[in-house]
Every structure is written in structure tokens, then in C-alpha cells.
Design a protein around this nucleic acid. Structure first.
Lengths: 349, 349
DNA sequence: TAGAGCCTGGACAACGTTGTCAGGGTCGGG
DNA sequence: CCCGACCCTGACAACGTTGTCCAGGCTCTA
């Protein structure tokens, strides 16, 4: 007695719009399934004549291999995830591109997303990427606790943090020398005769911000200059408040004669404020800015090489993936002081 | 006679680093596979007690659902691909971010890559994305023949082109009003008394470049000014050649008194050249530039809203995905003339 | 001409998940 | 007390691909 045929479980509607599968190709070419697979993957052991027939069928049907199934079988997705703060921030453009180029050289695609500086959103993104089984992760952390990544690390997801270190887990990290860069920048102002130097930066809770603040303090201390609280403005980045903070520093009885700004957003606003004033104020900013050389005076900056950050991180990632079980390491890239005028103005006392 | 047990086909080494599967979770929680699936997906029909046990096992094992398998089963990847020219170009930052935000609002991730203005690389990327079965594609085309996408379109991959139209296929496209913007920009110069106006732009093979050139010609014609060939420099974008072209226009017996630049890379170089000269030359550039207001004179530009391009394209994409079988359409977004000084300089005759 | 060995091709299981369906238990009503 | 309705749970197939293994046909040599 023949079994009653089991009802097929095909999904309703157009699954992938009903794309042809290898089975369809095989049927059309009159060969076996595996032979199609061999042709598609360029494996040896297929006669030219058979290969031609298969190619023809592929062409005719518009077949395209389904990588989801391939991934499921092979266990590798050939893709890496990049989580950064904001894709639209010009600082991250070269970084993303560098990661992409390295990934491309290793045959991998890049999936990326913006955390918008929100720890929860960062975690959500990272875990979504892990669920897709990206081979590796490059993360510019927003939060300060990454223990949620522990199971992933144990499972062998290669991970490299960039720009800021990971929180509460042991992982590779690639950062700029924020401390040294800020120290050099401030020392540069001191060398040009300044003693009352303002610092405007982000919340010290952010690693880069606190390192840069530390560099500022170190340079001042090295020069034997006691720092007054009123010279520092921390946790201030939106244009309105930066403007107010700058004006305050410049309007006191003993105004600062120079300003060191902790990141490019702050720098831009400060330039605007200073350009409205007649008395020249020296300025050195952390992070380079496009067209900085065209301003009058040219903008002196402590530049980090964001492409190098991305490239270094991605290369480290693929070394992990290539099997070396490397001990987590902290890699620090140097910054570069670029003098263009604004940092060389003498104090207007 | 008992069958000899078939050799298991487990892959060598650490597949996904041997991550736990639902089966493992089920075993540990002492429940069935499907029950775990139900808990993971928040489906109804599980008693709180059972759910608790499952959650516990998930936690203990560090289980994370494998989306590759899920995709294979469900036929939707919840991801969209974005192919652009260069992730590092500031013009594309806001565009990418906008696409990402729309995708996020629809629960999708963004996979993106740079074509580096190379048609072959564009195709390679697009097809790789199709193999991953992205639900949709946003493409800034590098090539001018997209017939290779026909099978994909038939298979139901939603596709929207941005910034430039697709070549030789019928598809949605979102572009800026390049023609109108350039015409307005040049007309603005004419209105300020200029008659000898230079144009420096990309190869007319690139759609945006030819449209902007067309706008330039139209404005000149509207004003009854015959255009001399020596005023136009086409297909020139690298700094060295732009510099030479600019200097040439300015050193002839009858030098141009104003320049219209066809994109931001060109604009930047021209600003550098002009800033070295004593005689003021008016300038209007296509594409806005950060800090354009801080230059002296401020830079007058025809600005496109790159975030709006991305947002519009992505929204259109998801409307396609939500089922409306929309007829392919061309959507044109307006540009905006922003006057800041450089375009209002009078001719120095 | 037979046997050994190679080459090509195909059958089949397995990857980890979800949809379908059926079994078993509980509860309430007749 | 029995039956049906309902709820929870799990067995099983299927998604499309690739790795393994075997069969059959061919060539080459003795």
C-alpha cells in the first residue's frame, strides 16, 4: 500500500520571489545536484561539455547561489560587522572605508550600523550582528560595559575595539595616543608663550575625552602652571553651550589667551566664536578638519589618522580569524601636530 | 542485522566555535526543540514555568539564535544593501546614515560597500549582496549598464538607484535637480555682472556631470552669452589638473572673472588656487562643504541634501517591499543656492 | 581481453531553524 | 462519569547548499 504523500510545507507567496535553486538548474541541465554545485564553485571533476550545459542552464534561469544556505552549511559568513557612533561623522568615513578595504581583500563584506552614542543601541546592534554570525566585529564602543560579549568571544567571534577601549572585558583595542597628542598640543601653546589656556572637551566619562584632559593637565603641570577650574569646560559639545563656555573664558578679568579644544565638533564652534572677536586668541584643536588650511589663520590641530585606526583594527581582526590565538593587546597609534597658524599666535596680553 | 552506523559528517574544527543550538538548549531545559523556538521568538503557548526553564538554559549556555538558518527557512533576511562610490566621501556620510535610519525603523540591517567608481566592482558588489539575499538594494551607480540586474528584479529584489539613473533598465531613481541647480548657480553669477564664466567639472559621461554642464550652458544661453570652449574644463578632478585648468582660465588675455565648479572635490582645489591670487575671482560650487561659512569670503554653493536623497530612496525601497507594485519612477529633489560671499563678488575687469 | 585504476557524476545526510500537525493532558459541562 | 474543547508540547519535514561516499564507465597496461 502506497503511503499517502505528505503535504508539502512550502511557504505561501513568493519566497525569494521563487528564485531558481540548484535543483532547478540540475533538472534543466539534466545533471545531478552536486554537479551544479561543483560548477558554481569552480571545483574540479566536471567535463567541459557538462560544465557548458550547466552554465547554460544557470544563465537561462538567472540562477544565483543562495549564500544563506551556504553559510549554514559552511559555518562562515565572510562578513564582518562594524559598529560606530555615526556613519555621517566625517571622522568615521575614512575609518569605515579602511575597514571595508581590508575586509574586501579577505573576501568579506561589511555590515555596519550607528550606535548614536547610545550603549543600549550598541548592544542591540552587536547582538544582531552576532546572530547573523558575522565572522568578526569592529566596535567603536558607546557603552562602558561589554560583558554581554563574553559568550560571543568564547564562541570565537573575533573582536577588535577601536578609538576607545572595551569596558570590563579583555579584548583587542586600537586607539590613538590621546593623552600624548593633547599634551603635545597644549605644550605647543605654552611654547608660544601662553599660560592661561582654556580646555573645552567632552564628558570625562568618555575615554578619549578624559585622556585628552589628562594630557592637558600634564602639559600644564610640566610647565609649572597651576590650572584654574574656570579654564576648563567639560561635558559640553552642543554648539550653544560651547559658545557660551568660550565666551565666558574670554570675558573674565583674566581671560585665557589660548584654547585647546577636545574634538572636532567643539573646534568648529570655537572657530566661529573666535572669528567674531577682534582680539586674536590662539587655538589648537584635537582632530583634523577638512579645509583647515584655508581658514585665516590656518587651523593648527592634533590630527589622528582615522584610516590607520580602521586599517590596523581590521588587520588585527583578520589575524585573529586566520587562527593565531593572540593575547588581547592594546595598540596605540601616534597623533601628529599640524601647525597652520592658529596655534602659533602669540598671547594678546 | 543492525546497520553499521553511518559516519557523521560533522565539519572539522570549530564550526562557529561550536556554538550551542536550540537543540542543546532544549536538551538542557528538558523540553522539545520547538518549545525553545517558541520562547526565543516570543510565540504564545508556553507556560511561564517552562519558559523560565528555557530562559535559564539559554542564559547558561550563552545561546544566540543563528539567523542564517532562520533566513533560509523564512526567506527574508531583513537586510538591505547599499552600494556607493566611496564611504569616505563626506557627501555619502549623511546619505548612508539616512538609509540606515530608515532601515532600522523597518528592523533591517545595512550592508554596504564602495564601488570606487568602478563599474565592474559595482556589479561584483551588487551580485554578492544578491547572493546574500538582501531584501533590497540602494545603488549609487558607477557603471552605465545594469541589465545584469534583470534576473534579480524579476526575482523581486527591491531596488532604488540614487544620485544617478540606472543604465538600460527600468528602475526607481532618486536624484537631485542637477540641471536646475547648476543653471541657478550660474545665473546667480551672471546676475552679479559676470559674463566670462569658467566651468570645471567631471567627465560628461557621468550623468550628474553632464546635467550640471547642461545647466551651465542653459544659463549662459538664457543670458545670451556665447560660451567659449576655453572656459570649460571637463573630465578633470584630480587636484593637479584642476589647478592647471584653473590657472589657465585665469591667465588668458581675456580671463574668466568667475568660476562654477561641478563638484566638491573640484571646488576645494579651486578655492586653494584662488586664495593664492590677489585679484578676486567669484566662485560658486556645486555641493556644500563643511565650514564653508568660515572661509573668507564665505563659499557660495548649490547645495544638495544628501540625507534627503538617502531617506527618500530608502523609503521608496520599503514601500516596494511592503508590497505596492509601484511603477518605476524618477524622483527629483530640489537643490538650494546658499549665498555666503564668494558668488557675490563683482567681476574684476 | 581482463583487471586495475582513474575520472565523472549522483545519492544522501547534515547545517539550525520554523511551520504543520498530532498526541496527551486538563477542565468543564452534560 | 464520560465526552468534547482547549491548551501545551514535541516530532518531523523542509529551506538550499556542501561534504562524503559509492557506482559506473572509461583508459591503460599486462
Amino acid at each position: 500500500m502506497p503511503e499517502t504523500p505528505r503535504r508539502t510545507h512550502r511557504l505561501p507567496g513568493s519566497r525569494y520571489g521563487n528564485r531558481p535553486t540548484m535543483k532547478d538548474v540540475a533538472a534543466r541541465a539534466g545533471v545531478g545536484l552536486k554537479t551544479v554545485s561543483r560548477v558554481v564553485n569552480g571545483e574540479p571533476g566536471v567535463t567541459p561539455e557538462t560544465e557548458r550545459r550547466v552554465q547554460e542552464a544557470i544563465e537561462a534561469l538567472g540562477f544565483r547561489r543562495n549564500d544563506s544556505a551556504r553559510v549554514l552549511r559552511k559555518g562562515r559568513t565572510s562578513s564582518v560587522g562594524l559598529v560606530l557612533e555615526d556613519l555621517a561623522d566625517p571622522f568615521y568615513g575614512p575609518l569605515s572605508r579602511a575597514v571595508e578595504e581590508v575586509a574586501r581583500a579577505h573576501g568579506a563584506l561589511l555590515i555596519n550600523g550607528s550606535s548614536a552614542e547610545d550603549a543600549e543601541r550598541e548592544q542591540e546592534l552587536v547582538l544582531a550582528l552576532c546572530a547573523r554570525r558575522v565572522d568578526g566585529l569592529v566596535v567603536i564602543p558607546a557603552g562602558d560595559d561589554h560583558r554581554y560579549l563574553e559568550p560571543e568571544l568564547r564562541a570565537g567571534v573575533a573582536t577588535v575595539f577601536v578609538d576607545r577601549p572595551a569596558g570590563r572585558i579583555d579584548a583587542d583595542v586600537v586607539v590613538s595616543d590621546n593623552y600624548g597628542g593633547a599634551r603635545d598640543g597644549v605644550a605647543h601653546l605654552i611654547a608660544h608663550g601662553h599660560r592661561r589656556i582654556g580646555f573645552i572637551g567632552d564628558m570625562p566619562g568618555i575615554h578619549t575625552a578624559s585622556e585628552r584632559l589628562r594630557g592637558y593637565r600634564a602639559a600644564m603641570e610640566d610647565a609649572g602652571i597651576p590650572v584654574e577650574d574656570s579654564w576648563m569646560s567639560l561635558g559640553v559639545t552642543d554648539p550653544g553651550r560651547v559658545r557660551r563656555a568660550t565666551e565666558e573664558m574670554l570675558s573674565r578679568p583674566d581671560p585665557v589667551t589660548a584654547v585647546f579644544t577636545g574634538n572636532n565638533r567643539v573646534t568648529v564652534t570655537v572657530i566661529r566664536v573666535l572669528s567674531e572677536r577682534s582680539r586674536p586668541v590662539a587655538l589648537v584643536g584635537f582632530d583634523d578638519i577638512e579645509l583647515a588650511d584655508l581658514l585665516r589663520p590656518g587651523l593648527t590641530v592634533v590630527a589622528q589618522d582615522s584610516a590607520a585606526l580602521g586599517r590596523t583594527a581590521a588587520e588585527r581582526l583578520f589575524r585573529q580569524l586566520d587562527g593565531d590565538p593572540l593575547a588581547p593587546e592594546r595598540i596605540e597609534l601616534p597623533t601628529k601636530l599640524i601647525t597652520r597658524g592658529s596655534g602659533e599666535l602669540p598671547p594678546a596680553d
